[in-house]
Design a protein around this nucleic acid. Structure first.
Lengths: 220, 220
DNA sequence: CACGCCCCTACCCGGACGGATAGGGGACCG
DNA sequence: CGGTCCCCTATCCGTCCGGGTAGGGGCGTG
């Protein structure tokens, strides 16, 4: 079984891989085409809109990989992606985008896309990724996927005074007011004051909500 | 600049890539070696322990990629990984494992590993991934990385009765006993009872701790 | 059947919590 | 200098929580 898979990998890499590139960005499209073909193992077809790409596939053209720009004429965000996936032959489809968020990337990968390529990739990585996907693998830049959903600079933490933050940390550890007071070496009434005011600032109505909100915001 | 990177990509792929495989699993090691070398662009060196791998690198051997098994003699989980990374020349290092969790994968990728390979990969994907990493990219299987931290069989949830779980869910939403009682259509004293007993079961001493423990365990 | 387990209800009490109010002291700034 | 902000302390009050105890009903198992 393993040997069979290996043989398949070897033979596929020896064949010519056909890639359809649909992107209205001339530079990216042409550069990708030139250097993929320069590798000798790629045959590329380029179009500048979703409708052209769809027409080619409907005409029965076979591709090992279809690259769709997230924002190009006719694409309409992910609508084009899903339409393309639904077409006869269900080609391997990848999304390339200069703006889309990690969230969009997760969506398309979940839906079974061949990959997601942000335009922030280096040209070298781009070529490698295309080769990788054309070989049948699923690709997305790991650092891009791993980044926390943009932890919106903790607008919460900014509104709290230093002392309130310390108290909030105590809350996220399930401590009582008395324990927090001891740990910070202040009186308990003071802790209760800080607790009360930070409730207002972050929109909590009890300590459990405060602790959960803090955790959710990535604090502590 | 782009052209420069492209040129680099092309020339690299034309060169022979040297890979060091350190794994005490004979089958995997040999299969990988045979089929990588079968591609013609790879030169592989195989050892069966961390110490042998370290010796080779210290002797000045150059590799485009070092594959380390997570569990092999001398490896000691990630200790070997960090030691290898600290060595002169700082080679590109990837971890291969049959057991490690997504958490471990995140750790090594964060630390700058070339990749993470679970042994559940197909042979074909394994070869593709090795080639990809040897080209300078970072790899990990996306489906593996995307899966929720496997809700580790929730030893906690198993010990709670269905009703206690419902109450716990209320706690994780910062609700008061009264609110929970209303939502579940039971009297408040009953809620207090469930709350009390579930504290004992999960080791919490107040509702905030209970909520945090539940969240930490991946519940709700 | 008796037993254990889960679910429900109820009462008690001391302490903790949530909210309001009223200060004092230090730092910074117009 | 007054104003503002933060940090600290304090008191009062009503409510909520945590913990204990004491039941009753249902369900399945030994």
């Amino acid at each position: 079984m393993i040997a069979q898979q290996m043989a398949q990998a070897v033979t596929r890499s020896a064949n010519v891989l056909r890639v359809l590139i649909a992107d209205d960005h001339d530079l990216l499209r042409d550069t990708l085409q030139i250097f993929l073909e320069g590798e000798g193992t790629f045959e590329t077809v380029c179009v500048a809109s979703y409708s052209e790409a769809e027409a080619l596939v409907k005409a029965g053209e076979q591709f090992d990989l279809v690259l769709l720009d997230y924002s190009m004429p006719g694409m309409n965000a992910l609508e084009g992606f899903h339409k393309m996936r639904a077409l006869e032959g269900s080609h391997r489809v990848a999304i390339i985008s200069g703006t889309a968020s990690r969230d969009v990337a997760e969506q398309v990968l979940e839906a079974g896309a061949a990959g997601f390529l942000p335009k922030t990739l280096s040209a070298k990585s781009l070529v490698n990724a295309v080769r990788f996907m054309a070989m049948g693998e699923q690709y997305a830049p790991l650092d891009f996927m791993r980044q926390e959903e943009a932890t919106p600079s903790h607008p919460m933490a900014e509104r709290l005074s230093p002392r309130e933050l310390e108290v909030l940390e105590g809350l996220t550890q399930g401590k009582s007011n008395k324990e927090i007071a001891r740990d910070l070496d202040i009186r308990e009434p003071t802790v209760k004051l800080h607790v009360k005011t930070l409730y207002r600032k972050i929109g909590a109505s009890n300590r459990t909500q405060a602790a959960l909100l803090a955790k959710e915001a990535g604090l502590f």
